[in-house]
Simulated assay, not measured.
Amino acid sequence: MSKILVIAEHLGGKLNPSTARAVSAAAAVKPEIIDILVLADSVEAIATEAAKIDGVSRVLTIARAENAHPLAAVLAPQIAKAAAGYTHVFAPSTTFGKDVAPRVAALLGVAQVSDVMSVDASHTFKRPIYAGNAIITVEADAAHAVVATIRTASWSAAASGTQSAPIEALSLDVALPTHTRFVELKQGKSDRPDLQSASKVVSGGRGVGSKENFEIIYKFADKIGAAVGASRAAVDAGYVPNELQVGQTGKIIAPELYMAIGISGAIQHLTGIKDAGTIVAINKDAEAPIFEVADIGLVGDLFKLIPELEQAIG
C-alpha cells in the first residue's frame, strides 16, 4: 500500500491553502497513510492547523532554528531523510514546491513528476505539457519513491474538520549545508484576497494602457471583492509588480470567476487560467484569442464598460 508524505507550505506561522490541495491529490492515490511534514523554527501553530485537514493520518514536525525560513538547500536534506519508508513525497507546485522538490528528488535519486493534475493509479499521473496545449500521462517507477509537485489549480482543498490528527516530533540526524543563508524577504502587501486562492480575480493587460490607468482594475476588483492579476505584457510594461502575473511564467490559478480586461489572450496567459470556472473577457478587439475561451465576452472600450458594470452592480 502507498504511504504519502505531504510537505507543508507555510509563511508567517500560517499554513498555505496549497497544502490542503496537495492532500486532496494524495487522497486520490488511495493510500494507506497520508502524513504531513512541517518544518519550521516554531511548529506548534502550523502543525495544529495541518492536523485538522481531513484525511491526514499524522502531522510530523521538525523544529530547528535553521528552518525559520524556507531555504530549499536546508529543507531538502531533512525531507529526504524523513521520507524513508514512504512511497510518495508530494509538494504543492508553487514557488516553494518548485524550489524544494527537485532537490529532494535528487537526494533520493529519482526523477521528479511535475505539475500533477490528476491521478490515474498509484504511480500513473497526468500533467500538462507544451504550455498546457497537451496532457501527457506519466508512469513512475514503482520500485522507487515518487517525488511529485501538485498543480494546485487542478485540485480543490481538502476540508478541515473538527477531528485532529496526532502530532509527532521527529528528531533526525542530518548535516545541513551552510553555503545558503537567508538575507531578507520582500513581498507585496495587500488587503485584497490572495491571488492564488481567491474565488474571484480581475486581471488587466496591455490594453489598460498605463500604470495610472490600472487604477480602474484595482477599483473594480475592490468593488466585487476580487483579487487582482495581470498579463505578462502588463507586468513587462511596468503597470504592476510581477507577483500579480498570471500565466505559464506567473501564477496558475483556478478562481470561480476570472475577468480578463484588456488582455488579448496569449497561450502563455491562457495556461494560467485553464481551470477557472467562468471566464469573462473585455477587449476592444473582437478577434482577440481570449474570446475563444471566454464564457462571456464584451467587445468595447474597457474605460466605458467598466464604469457601466460598476453602476449596474450598484
Results as ranks from 00 to 15, higher is better:
E308I: 08
Q78I: 10
Y218R: 10
D115N: 14
A111I: 13
A47Q: 09
V235E: 08
G97D: 12
A84I: 03
M1A: 14
A27C: 02
A237T: 05
L75K: 11
I224V: 14
A101V: 07
A73T: 06
M117F: 06
L244E: 04
A312Y: 12
T278F: 01
A276H: 01
Q163D: 15
I129G: 05
I62N: 04
T149R: 13
S171T: 14
G265F: 07
S57F: 11
P289D: 03
A312V: 00
M259K: 02
G55T: 07
L305D: 02
V208Q: 02
A226H: 02
A26M: 12
Q112I: 15
D173A: 15
T152F: 08
G265E: 04
Q268I: 05
L37G: 07
K14Y: 10
R103W: 14
I279F: 04
A288G: 09
T162M: 13
K211V: 03
K284N: 10
A312T: 13
L176V: 10
A82E: 03
I129Y: 02
P307H: 12
V228P: 04
I252E: 09
A158I: 06
A226L: 06
V113Y: 03
G132Q: 05
A237E: 09
A84Y: 02
T162F: 00
P289L: 03
M1H: 11
D120K: 15
E184V: 07
S164C: 08
N213A: 14
Q311F: 01
V113M: 09
A175Y: 00
P289K: 01
A145G: 00
V29E: 07
V29K: 01
N67A: 09
K14T: 12
G13P: 00
K200W: 03
I282Q: 02
E49V: 05
P70A: 04
A226E: 09
A254L: 07
H88Q: 08
E66H: 11
A63F: 00
M259Y: 01
F303C: 06
A134G: 04
G12S: 11
Y258R: 05
A169M: 09
V208E: 03
L172G: 08
A134E: 13
G85F: 07
I33T: 14
S264A: 14
N67K: 08
E49C: 02
A227T: 05
T137A: 09
A230N: 02
K189D: 07
A286Q: 13
S197N: 13
L15V: 15
T124P: 00
D301I: 11
E168K: 12
Q245I: 02
P128K: 08
G132T: 08
L170R: 08
R232H: 11
A169V: 10
